[in-house]
């Protein structure tokens, strides 16, 4: 089958989702079933078909550049698990935590 435990680990890392060994095995078979099922789309010739990315093909409305009141910092932070000096706290950032660091 196309989709392997290695692949699960790769996408789990991209999606920042810890996956146990047991879960990984189960996911391999679940996702393989769906991806195999999806291969039926290959039967269609789509070279000259334009994709439909949006719900409806209307043009975008634009917003006037007018200021709306913002939240107070208290309100912005009210649901945060950890706050310090009116800011959201995150634990230390290690090398490789950086934007989009993708591999194991």
């Amino acid at each position: 089958m196309g989709f392997t435990v290695r692949d699960v680990r790769h996408v789990a890392r991209l999606a920042r989702l810890a996956v146990s060994e047991k879960e990984a095995e189960r996911l391999v078979s679940d996702l393989n079933a769906v991806l195999t099922y999806a291969e039926q789309l290959n039967a269609l010739t789509t070279d000259s078909v334009l994709p439909t990315f949006h719900g409806l093909g209307r043009a975008m409305p634009l917003r006037e550049d007018a200021v709306h009141p913002s939240f107070s910092p208290e309100r912005a932070l009210s649901q945060a698990p950890q706050v310090k000096d009116a800011m959201f706290v995150v634990p230390r950032i290690l090398e490789g935590d950086g934007e989009g660091g993708a591999e194991e």
Partner: peptide
């Protein structure tokens, strides 16, 4: 005057998290 996708003010130097 405002951010790209919302009406919060686009301003440098305001107190933290006061323009959200």
């Amino acid at each position: 005057r405002t951010k790209l996708f919302c009406g919060c003010e686009n301003r440098f130097g305001a107190p933290p998290n006061s323009l959200t």
